[in-house]
Simulated scan of single mutants.
Amino acid sequence: MLNGLTLDQIRTFVTVVDSGSFRSGAARLLRVQSAVSHAIANLEGELGLQLFDRTGYRPVLTPEGKALLANARDLLLRADAMRARARSLGEGVESELSLVVDTLFPIATVAAAMTRVREDYPAITFSLESLPLGGPLAALDEKRCTLAVIVGEDFRNPRIALEAIGSVAQIAVVHRDHPLATKSAGGALLGLPDLADHQQIVLADPSPLSGGRAFGVLSPYTCRVNTQDVKFALIRAGLGWGRLPAWQVQDDLDAGQLVRLGISDLGRNSQVAYEAYLAHRLDEPLGPVAQAFRRALAEHPMS
């Protein structure tokens, strides 16, 4: 029954669903509408059921169409992944490797992996960008990088493969002269009323993936910044409190410049560990340099 089923038919089906109509699907596929209609009709014939209800102004998925849509997307993902792997087997060494790294991840670890890669590929050119929250995933989705380091479980995409490479601990800190430092003296736990009058320094998401969500924002007064370094500088200057990765603040904690806050709403001992992942697109091949970086990052201990 399914001997005549083709990937082109399946891709046409998914494109029509995603674009909302046969006409829009045809425009996206750079085809005439009649060709798209013909492909869908052939697919329906092969499957022996109707995928779209065409009685209205726009085609609407039938219950059968809705049930098969997930299968169609899965088949396309697998086909694209196979195609990407085949391309990687036939391609040579990349001339450039583009990386986007979550601001929570220690850049020294990335630098060590880059140094290791250059030992084997001295002619490689790197492009490195550091972005918070949904930035790394958006960069991969928009094909602005080959590899990304993503921290946490908040952002996912079925076209993105993840490989766990370590964990990052975030802790709440404030300058030693800030009023909250006094309140937290002796290991006292702070509650939401204690934070109500004090500014929290938080990172803004450069991507639309947050959708208005707030991550660990407890104070009604916030100062939103676009980089981790700015957030760190403002907290060190005593302008507010916030959460920062332990690797970034440990020296200041040891020197007594920053004080750790006890806030029960932000995990035990005000610390939360987030898993870090190396991510890449399933439909894009990883060349020799990208594979070398992947191995180097996995082998190098986080610092």
Rank of each mutant, 00 (worst) to 15 (best):
L192Q: 09
M302H: 12
P63Q: 14
R85P: 00
L234V: 13
L180P: 07
S98K: 13
K66M: 12
P122V: 06
V151L: 03
Q248S: 12
Y277N: 10
G187Y: 03
R268K: 10
V16S: 10
R85M: 11
V225H: 05
S167P: 02
L89T: 09
P179H: 03
E142H: 15
N269W: 06
F105A: 05
G191W: 07
F232R: 14
R87V: 09
D80W: 03
A138M: 13
L244G: 07
R73D: 08
S264G: 06
R78N: 12
K183E: 08
A84S: 09
A188F: 01
K66Y: 00
S98V: 11
G262F: 02
A138Q: 15
L209V: 10
G187V: 05
V173P: 04
G267H: 06
V100D: 08
L47W: 13
H38R: 15
V117E: 05
K143F: 09
N269K: 14
A237H: 03
Q250I: 14
V225P: 00
G134W: 00
Q50G: 06
F22L: 08
S88H: 01
T12L: 00
I40K: 08
F126E: 01
L234W: 11
D177K: 09
R118Q: 09
D205A: 12
A181W: 00
E142R: 15
T12C: 14
V100E: 07
L195M: 05
G287E: 09
D197K: 04
G152V: 08
L261F: 05
G45P: 04
I124V: 11
G216A: 13
R224S: 08
L258M: 04
R243F: 14
A273N: 15
V272H: 01
T146F: 03
L2S: 08
R268L: 11
Q9T: 00
P208I: 09
T182R: 15
M114P: 01
A276G: 04
G191C: 01
R295A: 12
A292S: 14
A108H: 12
P301N: 07
V202W: 03
A196R: 08
L140T: 08
L89C: 07
A67N: 05
S270N: 02
A233N: 10
S270A: 15
